[in-house]
Design a protein around this nucleic acid. Sequence first.
DNA 1: GTCAGGTGTCGAAGCGCTTCGAAATCATTT
DNA 2: AAATGATTTCGAAGCGCTTCGACACCTGAC
Lengths: 330, 330
Amino acid sequence: MRTVTIADVARHAGVAVSTVSYVLSGKRAISATTRQRVLDSVRVLGYHPNAGARALASKRANVIALVLPLRAGMNLPVLMQFATSVVATARQYDHDVLLMTADEGPDGIRRVAASAMVDGLLLMDVEVRDTRVPLLRDLAEPSVLIGFPADAEGLTCVDLDFNQAGALCAAHLAGRGHREIALLGAPEVVYERGTGFAERTRAGFLAEATGRGLHAVAVPCEETYDEVASAVKLLFDAHPGLTGLVVHNEAAVGHVLGALRALGRAVPEDVSVVAICPDDIAERARLTSVLIPAEELGREAVRLLMAKLDGLPAGSILLEPRLTIRESTR
Amino acid sequence: MRTVTIADVARHAGVAVSTVSYVLSGKRAISATTRQRVLDSVRVLGYHPNAGARALASKRANVIALVLPLRAGMNLPVLMQFATSVVATARQYDHDVLLMTADEGPDGIRRVAASAMVDGLLLMDVEVRDTRVPLLRDLAEPSVLIGFPADAEGLTCVDLDFNQAGALCAAHLAGRGHREIALLGAPEVVYERGTGFAERTRAGFLAEATGRGLHAVAVPCEETYDEVASAVKLLFDAHPGLTGLVVHNEAAVGHVLGALRALGRAVPEDVSVVAICPDDIAERARLTSVLIPAEELGREAVRLLMAKLDGLPAGSILLEPRLTIRESTR
DNA sequence: GTCAGGTGTCGAAGCGCTTCGAAATCATTT
DNA sequence: AAATGATTTCGAAGCGCTTCGACACCTGAC
């Protein structure tokens, strides 16, 4: 059973090879009758274009690379939703997805790009000082990052709009009548590193709260139970009237609840808690939250990459946060 | 910055294109000096073979497809470990991985296979009556399945040896002096469907227990708390002397522990529990268990696929189960 | 009736690589 | 010194597709 080539289709339809190609790509006008005849032959013979030959001739592989941080410690549901969404969206644009793990590092990226195996790259979870970022910057192949590295200049990134997310949380608490609120953020070092998302959340939170005339503070928050508990205690000691808490630290969120319980403050009766974290965590603890929109992230990332592949300019985009109200705020 | 081709390398090294090719593929002997000269040129010019051209000429894409059931309800850690292991192992064999989701169905498989995009396929979580199985059977491209479909004839499958796993659990309990033990298995329907793994576990369990002169029973087990609780209650009513329990039902294992607590039977003081389930579940509940060896599964699956790609015959294989002793048995 | 300008189709030239057969080179043997 | 056989290298023919320029034909304008 030799595989069917475009020449077989051309012969069967009684046209030239190039005509078949044009029918299939639509890059030149072909009369309706010829067109139909070719399409029939394609179906009858069960023709599928050879990907390698097509890539060679057209310099387009119709494949994008998805570089995932397949290491422990990732939030798996988020990762999965993201990957699923990327594959599905890519298929809509008639592209396939090559899966790579981050541990091949820059070399892996260079390899697949230079071999023309993929037309573009999607990188998830880029670190602030990622060794791959400079590489991406002067790679011929376009790329899109999920999250923002320290210097996003010249790169296309997609992420949740953390500034707005912080503001949204503050606004939610304000709307419920809270007058004194606080943000428990990322660990100290994350701010020191100048990681964008942590700071932006804080800025958005403080600006919104202040704008609405609330009393608001923002403090960093470590991730062990003891540190979280003491941070929470200090916070309430300093601000006894505190009734609203925003937690932007997925590792600490469970501990915060434990600490509140230990302090005898009931949620949501005494204090309302809003989290900014993956949906599964919030769902499990029944927390009002702003979720990480993994599916939308994947969709938008692919959309941007496809635009770049078409030579269109593509700036970074921020996704609008949405609040899901559960049982931890009143 | 034109991309470097094999012709550039040949020119730079002062040899024929074919010589470069042979140096790189090792398919013909090349003298050490020429060889070194070519290799140097490759490095100096930063040459990476064009994947499409290579695939076209050699009829080998050096890519395998990984078809994952990216739907809700999967055990994510297992899936991740598996995917990671597949990618890493494939790289060792100089192959890349094309990620596909099961929801493209048979057409997706036909498409990537016919387009010569991939040389072989790896399918995870094949269902008992999977519409893709007949297709795989008469596909030119080799494939390996994780898990066994109803009729595995003519297919290459990899799975945990559930028969031995059942036996191992029985042996463990026997070794600890338990004389009367039971297996809580999959829901009734799973057995009715004739799903291999459930039955094999039961057979192995019963054979081993009987062989060692124990009193053993095996009952199906649904997955809601109420059904689990009543099944557990019935079991202990019928066999008051029961002190060992094997649970082969990852959805029910939590409920079983709850039901035992409700019955006032302490684990492991009154009854020892062994689970056959993914490691994260067992770990969380501190259960002695036989885990699903995701990483090994991925590695072996790739190994088998590579063997088939080399034209070697490859039968199905069963991985030997291993018991991790935790705090639920004594 | 002729010519400009469309349409629709064809032929051929690659794209960058692998692989086959043959040529060239060298070391042995007679 | 010639012949033999290994060893090493070369040249050229594809692999299946896209794409460019050109050709053939048809239309309508003059």
